[in-house]
Design a protein around this nucleic acid. Structure first.
Lengths: 132, 132
DNA sequence: ATAACAAACGTTATATTATAACACTATGAT
DNA sequence: ATCATAGTGTTATAATATAACGTTTGTTAT
């Protein structure tokens, strides 16, 4: 049961923008897009991003320093993320593959580490770009 | 058969530093460490890093913007990387698990993407930090 | 209702990470 | 020898992210 979380004004503004976007957004591009709404400083963006990530509403694509909305409505806290990234058109898709996710969540390091979360990024060519 | 590659002066300096290090190094910390050797500008570091990554001698830990030496002597080009990262002491280990690597290399996205490489980062507590 | 606390806000400044652009130098192949 | 390629050195600047400070708002406990 996805408990609906309520966000503050800035958090909601940032979330809206990310959810409307077709692809990952960078922090400063978010900033430029919300200046009309009275947000003027990077801090305000980064603070909102932090909270949204914590809440599992968005994810950071580490290899791109960019942020996408979470597409798994049930992934309240993002402890297991996987993405496919096209190296040509840069399209990013969140992968929700139960098997993969289970496989990785169960993975145990030989050296006795206890994992809390993981992030996986696949790079390649998407269907469209493959045939070009 | 690991064909030995030869590196330029700067590339070798940077590689040496990274290989000697106990953990991931940041680009600017590398820079500060090699100023006595006549390297003065970030560009010189980043250029060397690029080549070393291409050659598979080092990897970038995306979540930390830091660089580690490759521990799989056979991983000439880094197309399949996995790391464990302790969230407490920040220690990073390259995971070389054939099963995991095969599993992920075979993974195919529903949407028909062809993957060329992946990077996986696990976060948690290492053995030492767990018991603290 | 109000005191107390935590969370969010706004702002200025600055730190950190990374690339652009340009001129020069070494190396290796034909 | 000349041509292409990779590497170098340098200055400048872009892009990403955090520190620090004081204020405001929202929640909860009494």
């Amino acid at each position: 049961m996805a408990q609906t979380q309520t966000f503050s004004k800035n958090q909601q503004i940032v979330l809206d923008i990310i959810e409307k976007a077709k692809g990952p957004l960078k922090a400063y591009s978010i900033l430029f897009n919300v200046q009309k709404k009275g947000i003027n400083a990077p801090q305000q963006i980064y603070r909102a991003l932090d909270k949204l990530i914590e809440a599992g509403k968005i994810h950071k694509i580490e290899s791109k320093n960019a942020f996408v909305a979470c597409k798994n409505s049930n992934c309240e806290v993002s402890k297991a993320t996987a993405f496919s990234i096209c190296e040509s058109c840069e399209i990013v898709d969140e992968i929700s593959d139960t098997k993969l996710s289970k496989y990785l969540s169960k993975f145990n390091h030989k050296k006795g580490m206890k994992f809390r979360r993981f992030n996986l990024e696949f790079f390649g060519l998407c269907k469209k770009c493959k045939t070009k």
